[in-house]
Write a protein that binds this DNA or RNA. Structure first.
Lengths: 350, 350
DNA sequence: AAAAATTCCGTTACCGTGCACGGAAATTCA
DNA sequence: TGAATTTCCGTGCACGGTAACGGAATTTTT
């Protein structure tokens, strides 16, 4: 409070009778300092409450830190497209002057492309990496490389069992399924629900929808144990097939009104739903894709549960930046983000 | 992309055959430069794509910018307490090295204390001010002072008619009332609602609840025109009185189940509601005060509509910082923030 | 005890801008 | 035309920290 003047390494040098070169050496403990001098400097730092000047430091070393972002290809209108848009959110022009971000993309259905992309990341020798764990073993493999090279990394979206990451930013998956069920049923008893699922591929992937579904089922078991729960599977790349599947299901089950989908692709079934309106129907999906929000606006979808993937990316980048530039490590590892409930009445300003 | 090396004012000096002193003069156009030289420098800046090095600049001038925050006193558990907690969110340690924030508080029921606080802000000659418009004319008066002195300012929470502010961060008020009604009724017809209001004081204050109520009534008019809407008034400082008012209202109107309140004080009526449970009741309030969230958890309150006042403060500070440090002006003035819907199932990670 | 090797430490040249000072060049005045 | 101004512009130090370089002091070797 009182003493306004920031104290510098020169002050410490003077105080200890040493030179700023020596002070600098102990600050970055890069050796070549006697025990005695080391102790004296540390003491002075304590006493005077020295704090390094970030600007001077950054200016002097003039290094640009590279943050690598390793994500599935962001085809327009997909979840990963949202995530990627968060890179630009690293708004802070000051910080960003010493930060460079580079996006490494891969095909989320092709493990080899992931391996190639990982290799490229390692090649680039970044100061930090943001990634989503898609392929379990391959992710494990690459993060071990990161650790071996002392490269910090953050997970977004979901999180593997491992433990070496700097931080994780994502939605509490099980809870999100629970919330989803509550929004669908509005806390009232319902008699039937249809879960629409996407058939997964051969590789063992980390799949957030598993936990969501579990949360959903837990809620239903507690609140609507009588409720009949059906599952149908669709193929994202076959719109005609989707229509067929739904058509045949609903002709067989005219009494089913409610629909949920635990991934971001609720928009895939929207065309069908538009053609077959049902005033008693409720539809809940996930993630604020453009197409999903459109469906929310016109009432085809009742509720979307969203997790701000852009924010997750932004926060991950910031955590890595703080680590790289200032050597800070975030107090918490796991950051469970708020689950946003979107309806047609609050979708506009999202 | 290709040329990696950042170009500096020295490069420009060399290119133009002038000295860096001159280049610096045109960069900050502080005169003492001939037309011809000025033009040449500008041209070179264009051609080479010069961008100043923020760190060097900040280091050289070494000035700490002061951002003043002018808000109602943040008594624990109030809305303004939340807002104030956002000051600490100016997380970016790099930026914050050149930023200093100072909180100026006043009594939101005492216009003189506001005047005193405003005077103190002017006294401090800050590089920017964050404020919420409580007293209309007094706010007008002080912002005129800011403009006269070239001090940029941002509004949060709500926004007066005037026009000289740098940016505004807040909830779309009318829409929030609309949303509130939808959450209360769940889109279904209801027959009656009770609006609980706080009697306002003598001074003409900027009152966000007016717009919210308007939005609410608009919704009801559209969706439940038959609905009977009652109003009662309570005094925040008289708990016993609150109980009396509610007691007498509900004994007279046992058929009324639904309750809304358009300010952050829904927690005031929670004790009464807890003592008089009603399974058919729905209660909607605003803002994530601790007490409100508690009531959400135990089911006394059904839904809270929240606006992240901390984020508003953070964003306002960041906007001012960018302006003060880098001279940037934000692209948009008005930032309507997303309205968060909180239920017992997503309140935990908020 | 002298030479060789280590361990420590001070000096110094930057990093890119900001800014004060003083002087050269151009202009105005007498 | 020479002096007095006014316009312009270059020089140089400061900001706080980084890191290479080389030398003094100390320790180890022969």
């Amino acid at each position: 409070m009182a003493q306004n003047e920031k104290i510098t390494i020169n002050d410490i040098a003077r105080r200890t009778g040493l030179s700023k070169g020596t002070v600098d050496r102990v600050l970055h403990n890069r050796g070549e300092v006697s025990r005695k001098s080391y102790a004296r400097v540390m003491e002075a730092i304590q006493e005077l409450g020295y704090e390094p000047n970030v600007f001077a430091s950054l200016l002097a070393k003039g290094k640009k830190h590279l943050i690598a972002i390793l994500l599935p290809a962001h085809e327009p209108g997909t979840f990963w497209d949202l995530a990627v848009s968060g890179i630009a959110l690293t708004t802070d022009s000051v910080t960003s002057a010493s930060l460079e971000t580079k996006l490494f993309e891969y095909d989320q259905y092709d493990i080899d492309s992931f391996r190639t992309a990982s290799a490229a990341v390692l090649e680039a020798a970044p100061s930090g990496v943001v990634l989503a764990p898609m392929f379990q073993e391959a992710t494990q493999a690459v993060t071990e490389q990161f650790q071996a090279r002392g490269i910090p990394y953050c997970f977004i979206d979901s999180r593997p069992e491992s433990n070496g990451y700097l931080a994780y930013f994502g939605m509490p998956l099980h809870k999100s399924g629970y919330l989803c069920a509550d929004q669908l049923t509005r806390g009232q008893d319902i008699s039937s629900v249809l879960i629409i699922r996407v058939r997964r591929d051969r590789y063992q992937q980390s799949d957030p929808t598993v936990n969501r579904r579990a949360g959903f089922l837990d809620y239903m078991l507690e609140h609507s144990p009588e409720c009949k729960i059906d599952n149908v599977f669709i193929d994202p790349n076959d719109p005609a097939g989707i229509d067929q599947v739904l058509e045949s299901y609903f002709t067989g089950h005219p009494d089913v009104h409610h629909i949920v989908m635990f991934n971001s692709r609720i928009h895939l079934v929207v065309p069908f739903l538009r053609r077959h309106p049902d005033p008693g129907r409720r539809v809940v999906g996930f993630d604020n894709l453009k197409a999903n929000m459109e469906a929310l606006r016109d009432g085809t979808v009742s509720v979307l549960i969203c997790q701000r993937p852009e924010e997750q990316v932004r926060l991950a980048i910031e955590a890595l930046a703080e680590h790289a530039i200032l050597g800070k490590i975030p107090p918490r590892k796991d950051h469970f983000m708020h689950m946003d409930i979107l309806t047609r009445y609050n979708v506009e300003d999202y």
